[in-house]
């Protein structure tokens, strides 16, 4: 019988506010996600100009990862398992607009590259130098069951020492990020119930 794994830390980003382990650590007024994400970036004292090339989904995932990943994770084998409902559709729609009208045709590789949901995982891999297991799933809603099983098995089969899991949903200014670290150590047991509780907090 495998040992339990634990939820080591959680964060949420929603409605212009960021929470770590249930505590609000940043809240601001912002007209849109672009403004919120810029203010959050500045508040966290990040220096990473590539942030401003990212699409909204990647910015949201990036900020979440920034809250939870510490320097010690750079060397450890921390896998990335992310999921959402809308895939990369926020950017897909922008890209579609750029090719819809033959008289106003401007497809850009800088936009097209973000028409895949796993790019946000790639951005986090690069930022934190995580040469680790990574996957992107699509569900109609946060699937605590599958996420729990998959993160556990990665650790239990030694494919990863820890797993950063994320539900990163973004479409048309409607966004919700819920990220959490799973590892063999911690206080809150990693199971379907505790995940659903943390998600719905």
């Amino acid at each position: 019988m495998q040992n339990d794994n634990y939820i080591t830390a959680t964060c949420r980003i929603h409605n212009n506010e960021m929470f770590v382990d249930g505590q609000s650590i940043f809240k601001t007024q912002a007209a849109d996600f672009a403004e919120f994400s810029k203010k959050a970036y500045q508040h966290l004292g990040i220096s990473y100009p590539k942030f401003f090339k990212m699409d909204n989904l990647s910015k949201l995932a990036f900020l979440g990862a920034e809250l939870l990943l510490k320097p010690e994770h750079h060397q450890s084998n921390t896998a990335l398992v992310f999921a959402n409902k809308s895939s990369s559709l926020d950017t897909d729609v922008k890209y579609q607009q750029s090719i819809a009208d033959k008289g106003n045709y401007f497809p850009s590789p800088a936009v097209f590259v973000y028409t895949l949901p796993n790019i946000c995982v790639g951005e986090i891999s690069i930022r934190h130098q995580l040469k680790s297991e990574n996957s992107f799933f699509i569900f109609d809603a946060f699937n605590a069951n599958l996420m729990c099983s998959y993160a556990n098995l990665l650790i239990d089969t030694q494919k990863a020492h820890a797993v950063l899991c994320g539900w990163i949903e973004y479409f048309n200014e409607d966004y919700r990020a819920f990220l959490y670290l799973v590892s063999p150590n911690g206080n809150t047991i990693h199971n379907k119930q505790s995940l659903e509780t943390a998600y719905n907090q």
Binding site: N118, S135, F136, I138, Y150, L153, L154, D156, T157
Partner: peptide
């Protein structure tokens, strides 16, 4: 259903994920 959308590795990643879920 479980959807994997992970760029051009999606098709073979699914085999890996399936095998892992069965072993677990």
């Amino acid at each position: 259903p479980i959807v994997i959308s992970n760029a051009c590795v999606s098709g073979i990643m699914a085999v890996s994920v399936a095998k892992r879920l069965i072993q677990a």
